[in-house]
Structure formats: C-alpha cells, structure tokens
C-alpha cells in the first residue's frame, strides 16, 4: 500500500498539467518568505554593534564579540547550567506526569467525571504567570502562607520555598508541571483514542488485565507520539520559562534560579542592546536545532518513525 502511494504521489508531481496547483502555492510561499525567511536576515545583527540610526547595513561589524561577551561573562556558565537544569527537570517531570495522567484518565469510563476532571486540569494552562506569580508568593509565604500553615499544623517547620535554592527549584518545576500537565495530555489522549479497540478485545480474550493491556498495547502504540512530543520538547531545552522565573525569583535564589532569559533581561535593562539579545537568541536556536536533529535521528533509528 505504502509503495503504491509513493508511486502515485510521484506521478502527480511530474504531470505537466499541474501548474495550476503550483500557482495556488505561491501566496503561501511568499508569506513564508516574507515573514519567516526575510526577518532571518536580521540575524546579522548578532555579529554587529547594531545602532538603529545606522541600520543593518552601516552598523559596525564586531565579529563574534557578542558571543564572547556571553561566554566570558563571569556568571554565564552558572546561568546556562541553571537554565539546562530547570528545563530538563521540567521536561522530564512534565513528560512523565502528562503521560501518567493521560493513561489514568483514559481508564475512566464515566464520561461526566472524565470531562469534569479534564476541564479542571486544563484551566491552569490559561492563567498568566504574572497572576500566578502573585498567588504563589502569597500561598508560599513563610509565615502567613497557606502551605506553610498546613505544614506547621502537621508539625513541620515553615519552609521558605521561594528563598531557598533547592526549594526554589522544586517549586518552579512542580508548579510548571501542575500548570501544564492537563493541557499536555491532550495529544496523548488523542493518540490513545486512535488505538484499534480490537487489540484490547483480543488481549482480554487472552486474559490480559488492565496493567498488561497498558504495558503491551497502549504504550507500544504510543511510541511514535511519545517520540514526537519528546523531540519537539527538546527545542525548549534552553527555555526554562522566563515568565515564571521572572515573577518568582529574587536575589536569594540567584545561585540556582537565574536563567539565560532573566540574565539577558537585566543586561537589556541597562541599555537597549539589540545585538547582544540577537546573539543569545541565535545561540539558543542553534543549540535547539542540533538537539532536534539529534533527537530526530535517534527517534528514527530506535522507533523507526519519521516525523518530518
């Protein structure tokens, strides 16, 4: 079947009377060229000392100075390391929790209960971190915050969640997971809905329980989806979540909480430094590109699955 489809597709491409189809493509191609590729020309700013009144053509070329500044800055290693740590933790726990939640909710048979739960876990995704930041600061207050009052009630000493480096890490990762796991589970649920029910029926006949069904049918069927989700999430490895960190961090947790984006923000505050932020953006894109390509290879080799 697949072979046939391939042949068929090849035929269409070579047909001479298909020029109308190409004509219809032109607007889309133009849009992509103008709004996606053309702005990429601005990346040359990363190698310049860009000044608005000189423009891109007349600004001075500084070569790799902006990148040198980033890597020679005394704090940059720490900041990059922090970003990686937070992003990878978020990625890992985010993946595990969304998958786990999807598996569990998929087993709920009562539709009303199922959709109610889903609605509730979706909701936090739509809240902005500016709002949530204020709520968390209040909830996690070491004296009067609800969380610490509960802890105290259980005889545990109050914890300054946002003022201690390790607890900060914990708070940032768990609150992000809490906010996003409901939304992230959509794609897994969709994949599960697509699994052939006949497989489950056959397994039941063979005497497989729920656990065995999950292990031998649901999970293997979802490997392609998991590969896509993981690969795509790798592009976020240098994005630890500016909105969230910026609203929660403070000098007490600079050591583990300061990330590339907050650092760039503070540098940018001093003077509009376009070239430097472009350089950082380019650096992040290149790292993401390499990671995605690597992950894609692995997914292809291991899961024999082509995303693109």
């Amino acid at each position: 079947m697949e072979m046939a489809a391939k042949k068929h597709r090849g035929k269409i491409v070579r047909r001479k009377d298909s020029w109308q189809l190409y004509l219809m493509l032109i607007p889309a191609v133009l849009l992509v060229l103008i709004f996606v590729y053309m702005p990429m020309g601005g990346l040359v700013m990363a190698f310049q000392d860009y000044k608005p009144y000189h423009g891109i053509l007349n600004s001075d070329w500084v070569g790799l100075d902006q990148f040198k500044f980033l890597f020679e800055y005394p704090d940059s290693v720490q900041v990059i390391w922090n970003t990686l740590r937070i992003a990878v933790l978020k990625m890992f726990f985010g993946f595990v929790s969304t998958l786990g939640f999807a598996l569990l909710i998929n087993e709920v048979r009562r539709k009303a209960l199922r959709s109610t739960v889903q609605t509730f876990v979706f909701l936090p995704h739509f809240l902005s971190w500016v709002v949530l930041g204020g709520i968390f600061v209040e909830l996690l207050n070491p004296d009067t915050g609800l969380v610490n009052q509960v802890l105290q009630g259980m005889g545990i000493k109050p914890i300054f969640f946002l003022g201690d480096n390790n607890w900060f890490l914990f708070t940032v990762v768990s609150s992000e997971v809490w906010k996003e796991f409901g939304y992230g589970s959509i794609i897994f649920l969709a994949a599960m809905a697509g699994i052939n029910p006949a497989l489950y029926e056959a397994a039941q006949l063979d005497g497989a329980g729920k656990w065995k069904q999950v292990l031998h049918i649901t999970l293997p069927s979802m490997i392609p989806t998991m590969a896509v989700v993981l690969t795509l999430s790798l592009s976020q490895v240098l994005n630890a979540g500016f909105d969230q960190i910026f609203n929660l961090y403070n000098p007490l947790v600079y050591e583990k909480g300061d990330i590339i984006d907050t650092f760039v923000y503070r540098v940018g505050l001093i003077d509009g430094n376009y070239s430097f932020s472009t350089a950082v953006g380019l650096f992040k894109s290149i790292v993401s590109l390499i990671l995605i390509m690597g992950a894609y290879r692995v997914a292809y080799k291991v899961a024999d699955y082509k995303i693109f």
Binding site: L33, Y37, G41, L57
Partner: peptide
C-alpha cells in the same frame, strides 16, 4: 535557493535604510 532569496530580500530592505 531559498536562503539566497531570503538574504537578497533582506538586503533589499536594508538598502532602503540608506
């Protein structure tokens, strides 16, 4: 080709900055 195109587009734009 698309890269060349992209670059030439951006330089056209940049020219009008003069």
């Amino acid at each position: 080709t698309s890269l060349v195109l992209a670059l030439s587009f951006s330089s056209v734009i940049a020219c009008s900055n003069g």
